[in-house]
Write a protein that binds this DNA or RNA. Structure first.
Lengths: 261, 261
DNA sequence: CGAGTACTTGACACGTTTCAACATCCGTGG
DNA sequence: CCACGGATGTTGAAACGTGTCAAGTACTCG
Protein backbone atom coordinates (compact mmCIF):
# COMPACT_ATOMS: atom_id res chain seq x y z
CA UNK A 1 0.00 0.00 0.00
CA UNK A 2 2.50 2.59 1.07
CA UNK A 3 5.24 3.16 -1.48
CA UNK A 4 8.24 1.03 -0.58
CA UNK A 5 11.56 2.76 -0.32
CA UNK A 6 14.10 -0.02 -0.81
CA UNK A 7 15.52 -0.18 -4.33
CA UNK A 8 14.05 -3.54 -5.25
CA UNK A 9 13.37 -2.80 -8.89
CA UNK A 10 16.90 -3.92 -9.43
CA UNK A 11 15.19 -6.87 -11.08
CA UNK A 12 13.73 -4.75 -13.83
CA UNK A 13 16.97 -2.92 -14.40
CA UNK A 14 18.78 -6.21 -14.79
CA UNK A 15 16.19 -7.43 -17.21
CA UNK A 16 16.47 -4.31 -19.29
CA UNK A 17 20.23 -4.49 -19.17
CA UNK A 18 19.96 -7.87 -20.84
CA UNK A 19 18.66 -6.17 -23.91
CA UNK A 20 19.89 -2.59 -23.86
CA UNK A 21 22.88 -0.68 -22.67
CA UNK A 22 21.93 2.07 -20.26
CA UNK A 23 23.76 5.25 -19.37
CA UNK A 24 24.03 6.42 -15.81
CA UNK A 25 21.25 8.89 -16.32
CA UNK A 26 18.83 6.21 -17.37
CA UNK A 27 19.74 3.87 -14.55
CA UNK A 28 19.06 6.59 -12.06
CA UNK A 29 15.70 7.33 -13.63
CA UNK A 30 14.79 3.67 -13.55
CA UNK A 31 15.80 3.30 -9.93
CA UNK A 32 13.76 6.33 -9.06
CA UNK A 33 10.57 4.76 -10.37
CA UNK A 34 8.09 4.74 -7.52
CA UNK A 35 6.59 1.33 -6.90
CA UNK A 36 5.16 -0.77 -4.17
CA UNK A 37 5.55 -4.48 -3.72
CA UNK A 38 3.09 -7.07 -2.60
CA UNK A 39 3.09 -10.79 -2.03
CA UNK A 40 0.42 -13.08 -3.41
CA UNK A 41 -0.71 -16.55 -2.51
CA UNK A 42 -0.75 -19.14 -5.28
CA UNK A 43 -3.95 -18.99 -7.25
CA UNK A 44 -4.58 -15.34 -6.54
CA UNK A 45 -6.08 -13.46 -9.48
CA UNK A 46 -4.04 -10.42 -10.46
CA UNK A 47 -6.05 -9.06 -13.34
CA UNK A 48 -9.15 -10.21 -15.15
CA UNK A 49 -10.58 -9.77 -18.62
CA UNK A 50 -12.19 -6.37 -18.88
CA UNK A 51 -10.05 -4.68 -16.25
CA UNK A 52 -8.62 -1.27 -16.99
CA UNK A 53 -5.58 -1.16 -14.79
CA UNK A 54 -3.78 2.09 -14.09
CA UNK A 55 -0.58 0.37 -13.12
CA UNK A 56 1.53 -2.55 -14.22
CA UNK A 57 3.80 -4.95 -12.41
CA UNK A 58 7.21 -6.54 -12.49
CA UNK A 59 7.54 -10.08 -11.18
CA UNK A 60 10.21 -10.05 -8.51
CA UNK A 61 9.78 -13.72 -7.62
CA UNK A 62 7.46 -16.54 -8.54
CA UNK A 63 5.38 -17.43 -11.58
CA UNK A 64 2.37 -15.81 -13.19
CA UNK A 65 0.13 -17.27 -15.88
CA UNK A 66 -1.98 -15.57 -18.50
CA UNK A 67 -5.13 -17.30 -19.65
CA UNK A 68 -8.31 -16.90 -21.58
CA UNK A 69 -11.69 -18.63 -21.43
CA UNK A 70 -11.43 -18.61 -17.67
CA UNK A 71 -15.05 -19.53 -17.24
CA UNK A 72 -14.72 -23.01 -18.66
CA UNK A 73 -13.21 -25.88 -16.78
CA UNK A 74 -9.98 -25.91 -18.76
CA UNK A 75 -8.11 -22.66 -18.68
CA UNK A 76 -6.19 -22.09 -21.88
CA UNK A 77 -2.93 -20.45 -21.01
CA UNK A 78 -1.49 -17.87 -23.34
CA UNK A 79 1.72 -17.47 -21.44
CA UNK A 80 3.86 -18.28 -18.42
CA UNK A 81 5.76 -15.41 -16.88
CA UNK A 82 8.81 -15.59 -14.67
CA UNK A 83 10.81 -13.30 -12.45
CA UNK A 84 11.93 -10.18 -14.26
CA UNK A 85 8.97 -10.19 -16.63
CA UNK A 86 6.53 -7.33 -16.91
CA UNK A 87 3.66 -9.31 -18.32
CA UNK A 88 0.93 -6.69 -18.30
CA UNK A 89 3.02 -3.85 -19.60
CA UNK A 90 0.81 -3.89 -22.68
CA UNK A 91 -1.93 -2.44 -20.49
CA UNK A 92 -0.08 0.83 -20.84
CA UNK A 93 -1.68 1.32 -24.23
CA UNK A 94 -4.51 -1.15 -24.40
CA UNK A 95 -7.87 -0.06 -23.10
CA UNK A 96 -9.13 -3.29 -21.63
CA UNK A 97 -7.34 -6.44 -20.56
CA UNK A 98 -8.12 -9.37 -22.82
CA UNK A 99 -6.65 -12.02 -20.53
CA UNK A 100 -6.73 -13.14 -16.93
CA UNK A 101 -3.54 -13.29 -14.93
CA UNK A 102 -3.03 -15.45 -11.89
CA UNK A 103 -0.23 -16.12 -9.47
CA UNK A 104 0.78 -19.66 -10.40
CA UNK A 105 2.92 -19.87 -7.28
CA UNK A 106 3.42 -17.69 -4.31
CA UNK A 107 4.99 -14.61 -5.80
CA UNK A 108 5.98 -11.07 -5.08
CA UNK A 109 5.23 -8.29 -7.49
CA UNK A 110 6.28 -4.68 -7.82
CA UNK A 111 3.54 -2.37 -9.03
CA UNK A 112 4.30 0.82 -10.93
CA UNK A 113 1.74 3.40 -11.93
CA UNK A 114 1.21 3.80 -15.66
CA UNK A 115 1.59 7.53 -15.23
CA UNK A 116 5.08 7.06 -13.87
CA UNK A 117 6.03 4.75 -16.70
CA UNK A 118 4.71 7.25 -19.24
CA UNK A 119 6.70 10.00 -17.66
CA UNK A 120 9.80 7.84 -17.75
CA UNK A 121 9.26 7.02 -21.42
CA UNK A 122 8.72 10.66 -22.27
CA UNK A 123 11.87 11.77 -20.53
CA UNK A 124 14.10 8.96 -21.71
CA UNK A 125 13.60 7.88 -25.32
CA UNK A 126 15.95 4.94 -25.00
CA UNK A 127 14.06 3.60 -22.02
CA UNK A 128 10.90 4.04 -24.02
CA UNK A 129 12.53 1.88 -26.66
CA UNK A 130 13.68 -0.68 -24.11
CA UNK A 131 10.19 -1.10 -22.70
CA UNK A 132 8.64 -1.24 -26.12
CA UNK A 133 11.15 -3.92 -26.98
CA UNK A 134 10.12 -5.85 -23.88
CA UNK A 135 6.57 -6.05 -25.21
CA UNK A 136 7.92 -7.13 -28.59
CA UNK A 137 9.93 -10.03 -27.23
CA UNK A 138 6.82 -11.11 -25.35
CA UNK A 139 5.00 -11.08 -28.67
CA UNK A 140 7.74 -13.19 -30.21
CA UNK A 141 7.10 -15.81 -27.55
CA UNK A 142 3.40 -15.70 -28.39
CA UNK A 143 4.22 -16.48 -32.00
CA UNK A 144 6.23 -19.49 -30.96
CA UNK A 145 3.39 -20.69 -28.76
CA UNK A 146 1.04 -20.57 -31.73
CA UNK A 147 3.35 -22.97 -33.52
CA UNK A 148 3.81 -25.07 -30.42
CA UNK A 149 0.18 -25.69 -29.57
CA UNK A 150 -1.01 -25.70 -33.15
CA UNK A 151 1.59 -27.58 -35.12
CA UNK A 152 3.58 -29.90 -32.90
CA UNK A 153 2.51 -33.10 -31.28
CA UNK A 154 2.36 -33.94 -27.65
CA UNK A 155 5.88 -34.94 -26.65
CA UNK A 156 7.42 -32.27 -28.81
CA UNK A 157 5.12 -29.66 -27.33
CA UNK A 158 6.04 -30.52 -23.79
CA UNK A 159 9.74 -30.72 -24.56
CA UNK A 160 9.57 -27.35 -26.22
CA UNK A 161 7.85 -25.78 -23.25
CA UNK A 162 10.51 -27.12 -20.91
CA UNK A 163 13.25 -25.77 -23.14
CA UNK A 164 11.68 -22.36 -23.27
CA UNK A 165 11.09 -22.03 -19.57
CA UNK A 166 14.52 -23.28 -18.71
CA UNK A 167 16.20 -20.99 -21.20
CA UNK A 168 14.33 -17.96 -19.91
CA UNK A 169 15.17 -18.86 -16.34
CA UNK A 170 18.80 -19.23 -17.33
CA UNK A 171 18.72 -15.80 -18.90
CA UNK A 172 17.87 -14.17 -15.61
CA UNK A 173 20.21 -16.34 -13.59
CA UNK A 174 17.59 -18.59 -12.04
CA UNK A 175 18.71 -21.93 -13.39
CA UNK A 176 22.06 -22.75 -11.82
CA UNK A 177 23.25 -26.23 -12.73
CA UNK A 178 20.46 -26.68 -15.26
CA UNK A 179 17.88 -26.89 -12.50
CA UNK A 180 15.15 -24.35 -11.94
CA UNK A 181 11.96 -23.91 -10.00
CA UNK A 182 8.88 -24.82 -11.93
CA UNK A 183 5.98 -25.31 -9.54
CA UNK A 184 3.31 -26.42 -11.96
CA UNK A 185 0.91 -29.32 -11.83
CA UNK A 186 0.41 -31.60 -14.79
CA UNK A 187 -3.04 -30.10 -15.19
CA UNK A 188 -1.42 -26.70 -15.61
CA UNK A 189 1.01 -28.05 -18.17
CA UNK A 190 -2.06 -29.33 -19.96
CA UNK A 191 -3.51 -25.83 -20.00
CA UNK A 192 -0.24 -24.45 -21.32
CA UNK A 193 0.10 -26.99 -24.10
CA UNK A 194 -3.50 -27.51 -25.07
CA UNK A 195 -3.52 -31.18 -24.19
CA UNK A 196 -5.39 -33.30 -21.67
CA UNK A 197 -4.00 -33.94 -18.22
CA UNK A 198 -3.78 -37.64 -18.89
CA UNK A 199 -1.79 -37.16 -22.03
CA UNK A 200 0.55 -34.74 -20.33
CA UNK A 201 1.21 -37.46 -17.83
CA UNK A 202 2.00 -40.01 -20.50
CA UNK A 203 4.16 -37.67 -22.53
CA UNK A 204 6.06 -36.74 -19.40
CA UNK A 205 6.80 -40.37 -18.78
CA UNK A 206 8.22 -40.67 -22.25
CA UNK A 207 10.46 -37.67 -21.71
CA UNK A 208 11.62 -39.18 -18.44
CA UNK A 209 12.22 -42.55 -20.07
CA UNK A 210 14.36 -40.82 -22.67
CA UNK A 211 16.35 -39.34 -19.79
CA UNK A 212 15.88 -35.83 -21.11
CA UNK A 213 14.31 -34.11 -18.12
CA UNK A 214 13.38 -34.66 -14.54
CA UNK A 215 10.30 -32.91 -13.26
CA UNK A 216 8.38 -33.46 -10.06
CA UNK A 217 5.90 -30.61 -10.10
CA UNK A 218 8.31 -28.34 -8.28
CA UNK A 219 11.72 -28.43 -9.89
CA UNK A 220 12.61 -28.84 -13.49
CA UNK A 221 16.01 -30.32 -14.29
CA UNK A 222 17.34 -30.64 -17.80
CA UNK A 223 19.32 -33.84 -18.05
CA UNK A 224 20.28 -33.56 -21.69
CA UNK A 225 19.99 -30.16 -23.28
CA UNK A 226 20.87 -31.13 -26.81
CA UNK A 227 18.55 -34.09 -26.65
CA UNK A 228 15.66 -32.12 -25.26
CA UNK A 229 16.09 -29.32 -27.75
CA UNK A 230 16.08 -31.86 -30.56
CA UNK A 231 13.04 -33.60 -29.16
CA UNK A 232 11.30 -30.26 -28.67
CA UNK A 233 12.18 -28.73 -32.04
CA UNK A 234 13.61 -25.85 -30.07
CA UNK A 235 15.63 -23.00 -31.50
CA UNK A 236 16.24 -20.17 -29.11
CA UNK A 237 16.35 -17.38 -31.65
CA UNK A 238 12.76 -16.33 -31.01
CA UNK A 239 13.61 -15.36 -27.45
CA UNK A 240 15.71 -12.50 -28.81
CA UNK A 241 18.44 -12.68 -26.27
CA UNK A 242 21.26 -10.25 -26.34
CA UNK A 243 21.17 -6.56 -26.83
CA UNK A 244 18.93 -5.28 -29.55
CA UNK A 245 20.28 -2.92 -32.13
CA UNK A 246 18.28 0.23 -31.68
CA UNK A 247 20.55 1.75 -34.30
CA UNK A 248 20.57 -1.42 -36.33
CA UNK A 249 23.26 -1.96 -38.90
CA UNK A 250 21.18 -4.31 -41.00
CA UNK A 251 22.64 -6.33 -43.80
CA UNK A 252 19.47 -6.57 -45.83
CA UNK A 253 18.55 -3.33 -47.49
CA UNK A 254 15.11 -2.62 -48.82
CA UNK A 255 16.30 -3.33 -52.33
CA UNK A 256 17.59 -6.76 -51.41
CA UNK A 257 14.43 -7.65 -49.56
CA UNK A 258 11.84 -6.52 -52.00
CA UNK A 259 12.67 -7.15 -55.59
CA UNK A 260 10.20 -5.22 -57.66
CA UNK A 261 7.87 -7.48 -59.49
CA UNK B 1 13.15 2.68 -55.56
CA UNK B 2 12.80 6.39 -55.83
CA UNK B 3 10.76 7.87 -53.01
CA UNK B 4 7.18 8.21 -54.16
CA UNK B 5 5.61 11.59 -53.84
CA UNK B 6 1.89 10.89 -53.80
CA UNK B 7 0.38 10.87 -50.33
CA UNK B 8 -0.57 7.20 -50.26
CA UNK B 9 0.18 6.56 -46.62
CA UNK B 10 -3.32 7.80 -46.08
CA UNK B 11 -3.92 4.15 -45.25
CA UNK B 12 -1.66 4.25 -42.23
CA UNK B 13 -3.10 7.50 -41.04
CA UNK B 14 -6.59 6.07 -41.23
CA UNK B 15 -5.51 3.02 -39.33
CA UNK B 16 -3.95 5.09 -36.61
CA UNK B 17 -6.98 7.33 -36.48
CA UNK B 18 -8.99 4.25 -35.61
CA UNK B 19 -7.15 4.04 -32.34
CA UNK B 20 -5.90 7.52 -31.53
CA UNK B 21 -6.96 11.07 -32.06
CA UNK B 22 -4.32 13.08 -33.89
CA UNK B 23 -3.71 16.79 -33.93
CA UNK B 24 -2.92 18.64 -37.12
CA UNK B 25 0.75 18.64 -36.31
CA UNK B 26 0.88 14.90 -36.04
CA UNK B 27 -1.06 14.32 -39.22
CA UNK B 28 1.34 16.49 -41.10
CA UNK B 29 4.30 14.63 -39.67
CA UNK B 30 2.75 11.32 -40.63
CA UNK B 31 1.99 12.47 -44.14
CA UNK B 32 5.53 13.68 -44.48
CA UNK B 33 6.96 10.23 -43.79
CA UNK B 34 9.10 9.28 -46.75
CA UNK B 35 8.20 5.92 -48.20
CA UNK B 36 8.22 4.04 -51.41
CA UNK B 37 5.66 1.59 -52.63
CA UNK B 38 6.06 -1.64 -54.48
CA UNK B 39 3.78 -4.30 -55.83
CA UNK B 40 4.34 -7.99 -55.20
CA UNK B 41 3.14 -11.08 -56.93
CA UNK B 42 1.34 -13.67 -54.82
CA UNK B 43 3.80 -15.99 -53.12
CA UNK B 44 6.61 -13.47 -53.06
CA UNK B 45 8.72 -13.65 -49.92
CA UNK B 46 8.95 -10.32 -48.14
CA UNK B 47 11.14 -11.15 -45.19
CA UNK B 48 12.72 -14.34 -43.93
CA UNK B 49 13.83 -15.66 -40.57
CA UNK B 50 17.18 -14.16 -39.71
CA UNK B 51 16.75 -10.98 -41.72
CA UNK B 52 17.70 -7.69 -40.15
CA UNK B 53 15.57 -5.23 -42.02
CA UNK B 54 16.23 -1.52 -41.86
CA UNK B 55 12.75 -0.62 -42.92
CA UNK B 56 9.21 -1.75 -42.33
CA UNK B 57 6.08 -1.75 -44.44
CA UNK B 58 2.42 -0.87 -44.43
CA UNK B 59 0.08 -3.03 -46.45
CA UNK B 60 -1.80 -0.77 -48.82
CA UNK B 61 -3.67 -3.58 -50.52
CA UNK B 62 -3.69 -7.36 -50.42
CA UNK B 63 -2.84 -9.98 -47.84
CA UNK B 64 0.39 -11.00 -46.16
CA UNK B 65 1.03 -14.08 -44.03
CA UNK B 66 3.53 -14.69 -41.26
CA UNK B 67 4.83 -18.19 -40.78
CA UNK B 68 7.42 -20.28 -39.07
CA UNK B 69 8.97 -23.66 -39.89
CA UNK B 70 9.05 -22.64 -43.51
CA UNK B 71 11.34 -25.49 -44.45
CA UNK B 72 8.81 -28.22 -43.81
CA UNK B 73 5.99 -29.00 -46.16
CA UNK B 74 3.29 -27.47 -43.95
CA UNK B 75 3.92 -23.86 -43.14
CA UNK B 76 2.52 -22.95 -39.74
CA UNK B 77 1.06 -19.49 -39.98
CA UNK B 78 1.36 -17.17 -37.03
CA UNK B 79 -0.77 -14.46 -38.54
CA UNK B 80 -2.69 -13.08 -41.49
CA UNK B 81 -2.29 -9.40 -42.22
CA UNK B 82 -4.60 -7.16 -44.16
CA UNK B 83 -4.58 -3.70 -45.67
CA UNK B 84 -3.66 -1.05 -43.13
CA UNK B 85 -1.54 -3.41 -41.06
CA UNK B 86 2.12 -2.85 -40.36
CA UNK B 87 3.03 -6.42 -39.63
CA UNK B 88 6.79 -6.13 -39.30
CA UNK B 89 6.82 -2.98 -37.25
CA UNK B 90 8.29 -5.05 -34.45
CA UNK B 91 11.49 -5.19 -36.46
CA UNK B 92 12.04 -1.65 -35.29
CA UNK B 93 13.35 -3.02 -31.99
CA UNK B 94 14.01 -6.68 -32.57
CA UNK B 95 17.41 -7.66 -33.86
CA UNK B 96 16.48 -10.56 -36.11
CA UNK B 97 13.22 -11.58 -37.69
CA UNK B 98 11.83 -14.77 -36.21
CA UNK B 99 9.23 -15.34 -38.90
CA UNK B 100 8.86 -15.45 -42.63
CA UNK B 101 6.43 -13.14 -44.37
CA UNK B 102 4.92 -13.79 -47.77
CA UNK B 103 2.51 -12.01 -50.03
CA UNK B 104 -0.55 -14.24 -49.85
CA UNK B 105 -2.10 -12.41 -52.73
CA UNK B 106 -0.93 -9.80 -55.12
CA UNK B 107 -0.36 -6.83 -52.86
CA UNK B 108 1.10 -3.39 -52.72
CA UNK B 109 3.25 -2.31 -49.82
CA UNK B 110 4.65 0.98 -48.65
CA UNK B 111 8.13 0.76 -47.17
CA UNK B 112 9.38 3.23 -44.59
CA UNK B 113 12.90 3.36 -43.24
CA UNK B 114 13.27 2.52 -39.57
CA UNK B 115 15.32 5.66 -39.15
CA UNK B 116 12.41 7.77 -40.32
CA UNK B 117 10.02 6.00 -37.99
CA UNK B 118 12.39 6.50 -35.07
CA UNK B 119 12.67 10.15 -35.85
CA UNK B 120 8.90 10.44 -36.01
CA UNK B 121 8.54 8.68 -32.67
CA UNK B 122 11.15 10.89 -31.08
CA UNK B 123 9.51 14.07 -32.28
CA UNK B 124 5.93 13.07 -31.57
CA UNK B 125 5.38 11.18 -28.34
CA UNK B 126 1.76 10.47 -29.12
CA UNK B 127 2.64 8.95 -32.45
CA UNK B 128 5.21 6.89 -30.64
CA UNK B 129 2.41 5.69 -28.43
CA UNK B 130 0.12 5.03 -31.37
CA UNK B 131 2.69 2.85 -33.11
CA UNK B 132 3.54 1.03 -29.91
CA UNK B 133 -0.15 0.39 -29.49
CA UNK B 134 -0.30 -1.02 -33.00
CA UNK B 135 2.25 -3.66 -32.01
CA UNK B 136 0.26 -4.39 -28.85
CA UNK B 137 -2.99 -5.02 -30.65
CA UNK B 138 -1.09 -7.35 -32.96
CA UNK B 139 0.09 -9.19 -29.87
CA UNK B 140 -3.47 -9.43 -28.61
CA UNK B 141 -4.39 -11.20 -31.82
CA UNK B 142 -1.50 -13.60 -31.27
CA UNK B 143 -2.91 -14.47 -27.86
CA UNK B 144 -6.26 -15.27 -29.38
CA UNK B 145 -4.61 -17.44 -32.00
CA UNK B 146 -2.94 -19.47 -29.26
CA UNK B 147 -6.36 -20.24 -27.87
CA UNK B 148 -7.78 -20.85 -31.29
CA UNK B 149 -5.28 -23.38 -32.56
CA UNK B 150 -4.63 -24.90 -29.16
CA UNK B 151 -7.97 -25.14 -27.46
CA UNK B 152 -10.78 -25.18 -29.97
CA UNK B 153 -11.80 -27.89 -32.34
CA UNK B 154 -11.92 -27.83 -36.06
CA UNK B 155 -15.23 -26.19 -36.96
CA UNK B 156 -14.93 -23.68 -34.16
CA UNK B 157 -11.42 -22.83 -35.22
CA UNK B 158 -12.41 -22.12 -38.78
CA UNK B 159 -15.47 -20.15 -37.77
CA UNK B 160 -13.36 -18.06 -35.43
CA UNK B 161 -10.83 -17.31 -38.11
CA UNK B 162 -13.56 -16.17 -40.47
CA UNK B 163 -15.03 -13.94 -37.79
CA UNK B 164 -11.70 -12.37 -37.04
CA UNK B 165 -10.75 -11.67 -40.63
CA UNK B 166 -14.14 -10.30 -41.45
CA UNK B 167 -14.22 -8.07 -38.40
CA UNK B 168 -10.79 -6.69 -39.15
CA UNK B 169 -11.73 -6.05 -42.76
CA UNK B 170 -14.87 -4.29 -41.57
CA UNK B 171 -12.80 -2.12 -39.30
CA UNK B 172 -10.86 -0.69 -42.22
CA UNK B 173 -13.88 -0.42 -44.47
CA UNK B 174 -13.13 -3.39 -46.68
CA UNK B 175 -16.18 -5.52 -46.02
CA UNK B 176 -19.18 -3.71 -47.43
CA UNK B 177 -22.32 -5.78 -47.22
CA UNK B 178 -20.64 -8.41 -45.08
CA UNK B 179 -18.54 -9.57 -48.00
CA UNK B 180 -14.79 -9.21 -48.22
CA UNK B 181 -11.88 -10.43 -50.26
CA UNK B 182 -10.19 -13.45 -48.82
CA UNK B 183 -8.05 -15.08 -51.50
CA UNK B 184 -6.83 -18.11 -49.60
CA UNK B 185 -6.74 -21.75 -50.56
CA UNK B 186 -7.99 -24.43 -48.21
CA UNK B 187 -4.40 -25.52 -47.77
CA UNK B 188 -3.58 -22.06 -46.48
CA UNK B 189 -6.52 -22.14 -44.09
CA UNK B 190 -5.05 -25.41 -42.88
CA UNK B 191 -1.74 -23.67 -42.19
CA UNK B 192 -3.53 -20.91 -40.35
CA UNK B 193 -5.59 -23.21 -38.17
CA UNK B 194 -3.18 -26.06 -37.63
CA UNK B 195 -5.37 -28.64 -39.29
CA UNK B 196 -5.03 -30.82 -42.38
CA UNK B 197 -6.26 -29.68 -45.75
CA UNK B 198 -8.75 -32.48 -45.89
CA UNK B 199 -10.24 -31.59 -42.57
CA UNK B 200 -10.48 -27.93 -43.50
CA UNK B 201 -12.48 -29.01 -46.48
CA UNK B 202 -14.87 -31.05 -44.38
CA UNK B 203 -15.27 -28.39 -41.72
CA UNK B 204 -15.94 -25.82 -44.40
CA UNK B 205 -18.70 -27.97 -45.74
CA UNK B 206 -20.27 -28.08 -42.32
CA UNK B 207 -20.14 -24.31 -42.00
CA UNK B 208 -21.73 -24.01 -45.40
CA UNK B 209 -24.40 -26.54 -44.53
CA UNK B 210 -25.20 -24.48 -41.46
CA UNK B 211 -25.64 -21.49 -43.75
CA UNK B 212 -23.17 -19.44 -41.75
CA UNK B 213 -20.66 -18.45 -44.41
CA UNK B 214 -20.00 -18.66 -48.08
CA UNK B 215 -16.42 -18.95 -49.17
CA UNK B 216 -15.03 -19.84 -52.57
CA UNK B 217 -11.33 -19.25 -52.12
CA UNK B 218 -11.65 -15.64 -53.20
CA UNK B 219 -14.50 -13.96 -51.40
CA UNK B 220 -15.74 -14.51 -47.90
CA UNK B 221 -19.36 -13.70 -47.17
CA UNK B 222 -20.85 -13.89 -43.73
CA UNK B 223 -24.41 -15.12 -44.02
CA UNK B 224 -25.24 -15.12 -40.32
CA UNK B 225 -23.03 -13.09 -38.07
CA UNK B 226 -24.58 -14.05 -34.79
CA UNK B 227 -24.60 -17.69 -35.77
CA UNK B 228 -21.02 -17.69 -36.93
CA UNK B 229 -19.80 -15.86 -33.85
CA UNK B 230 -21.57 -18.40 -31.67
CA UNK B 231 -20.17 -21.29 -33.67
CA UNK B 232 -16.71 -19.74 -33.55
CA UNK B 233 -16.71 -18.78 -29.87
CA UNK B 234 -15.90 -15.29 -31.05
CA UNK B 235 -15.81 -12.20 -28.88
CA UNK B 236 -14.34 -9.17 -30.54
CA UNK B 237 -12.90 -7.55 -27.44
CA UNK B 238 -9.40 -8.85 -28.13
CA UNK B 239 -9.20 -6.81 -31.31
CA UNK B 240 -9.15 -3.65 -29.21
CA UNK B 241 -11.21 -1.53 -31.51
CA UNK B 242 -11.91 2.04 -30.69
CA UNK B 243 -9.57 4.65 -29.45
CA UNK B 244 -7.22 3.61 -26.71
CA UNK B 245 -7.06 5.68 -23.58
CA UNK B 246 -3.51 6.88 -23.43
CA UNK B 247 -4.58 8.85 -20.38
CA UNK B 248 -6.72 6.02 -19.13
CA UNK B 249 -9.39 6.70 -16.57
CA UNK B 250 -9.34 3.21 -15.16
CA UNK B 251 -11.90 2.01 -12.69
CA UNK B 252 -9.73 -0.61 -11.03
CA UNK B 253 -7.12 0.90 -8.76
CA UNK B 254 -4.08 -0.99 -7.61
CA UNK B 255 -5.71 -1.59 -4.26
CA UNK B 256 -8.76 -3.20 -5.79
CA UNK B 257 -6.72 -5.37 -8.07
CA UNK B 258 -4.20 -6.68 -5.64
CA UNK B 259 -5.53 -7.44 -2.21
CA UNK B 260 -2.57 -7.96 0.03
CA UNK B 261 -2.32 -11.49 1.19
C1' DC C 1 -7.21 -29.21 -75.54
C1' DG C 2 -4.01 -30.43 -71.94
C1' DA C 3 -1.79 -29.71 -67.59
C1' DG C 4 -1.50 -28.08 -63.33
C1' DT C 5 -3.72 -26.62 -59.24
C1' DA C 6 -7.37 -26.67 -56.13
C1' DC C 7 -11.13 -29.12 -54.30
C1' DT C 8 -13.81 -33.31 -52.93
C1' DT C 9 -14.71 -37.97 -51.30
C1' DG C 10 -14.02 -42.51 -48.97
C1' DA C 11 -11.64 -45.77 -46.06
C1' DC C 12 -8.52 -46.48 -42.65
C1' DA C 13 -4.91 -45.52 -39.10
C1' DC C 14 -3.41 -43.11 -35.34
C1' DG C 15 -2.95 -39.72 -31.69
C1' DT C 16 -5.46 -37.88 -28.22
C1' DT C 17 -9.41 -37.43 -25.23
C1' DT C 18 -12.53 -39.20 -22.09
C1' DC C 19 -14.02 -41.93 -18.34
C1' DA C 20 -13.24 -44.37 -14.39
C1' DA C 21 -10.66 -46.53 -10.97
C1' DC C 22 -6.79 -46.44 -8.21
C1' DA C 23 -2.35 -44.87 -5.91
C1' DT C 24 0.27 -41.41 -3.85
C1' DC C 25 1.33 -37.43 -1.57
C1' DC C 26 0.61 -33.75 1.84
C1' DG C 27 -1.49 -30.68 5.06
C1' DT C 28 -4.91 -30.52 8.70
C1' DG C 29 -7.25 -31.52 12.70
C1' DG C 30 -8.44 -34.82 16.07
C1' DC D 1 1.00 -39.21 16.31
C1' DC D 2 -2.17 -41.01 13.40
C1' DA D 3 -6.36 -40.65 10.56
C1' DC D 4 -8.56 -38.32 7.34
C1' DG D 5 -9.65 -35.74 3.04
C1' DG D 6 -8.49 -33.45 -0.97
C1' DA D 7 -5.55 -32.60 -4.56
C1' DT D 8 -2.24 -34.67 -7.64
C1' DG D 9 -0.41 -38.29 -10.18
C1' DT D 10 -0.90 -42.93 -12.58
C1' DT D 11 -3.01 -46.66 -15.23
C1' DG D 12 -6.18 -49.12 -18.48
C1' DA D 13 -9.79 -49.48 -21.94
C1' DA D 14 -12.71 -47.56 -25.14
C1' DA D 15 -14.54 -43.65 -28.03
C1' DC D 16 -13.68 -39.93 -30.90
C1' DG D 17 -11.67 -36.41 -33.71
C1' DT D 18 -8.34 -35.64 -36.96
C1' DG D 19 -4.65 -37.05 -40.01
C1' DT D 20 -3.15 -39.77 -43.81
C1' DC D 21 -3.41 -42.00 -48.14
C1' DA D 22 -5.27 -42.45 -52.48
C1' DA D 23 -8.33 -41.75 -56.12
C1' DG D 24 -11.17 -38.83 -58.58
C1' DT D 25 -13.45 -34.40 -59.96
C1' DA D 26 -13.67 -29.54 -61.13
C1' DC D 27 -11.61 -25.53 -62.39
C1' DT D 28 -8.37 -22.21 -64.69
C1' DC D 29 -5.12 -20.74 -67.74
C1' DG D 30 -2.10 -21.02 -71.58
Amino acid sequence: MRPESRPANKTLIEKILLITRLCEDERVALSALPFHTCSLRPGKTIISVGDRPTSCFIILAGFVTSSKISGTSSAGYTGIHIAGDMPDLFGLYLDEMDIDMRAASGCTLAFVEHAAVRRLCGDHPRLNGALWRLTLTDAAVLREWIINVGHRDAIVRLAHLFCEIHMRMLEVGLAPGDVCDFPFTQAELADATGMSTVHVNRSLQQLRALKLVSFDGKKLAILDWAGLAAQGDFQANYLHHGRGTAAAHGRASIEERTPHV
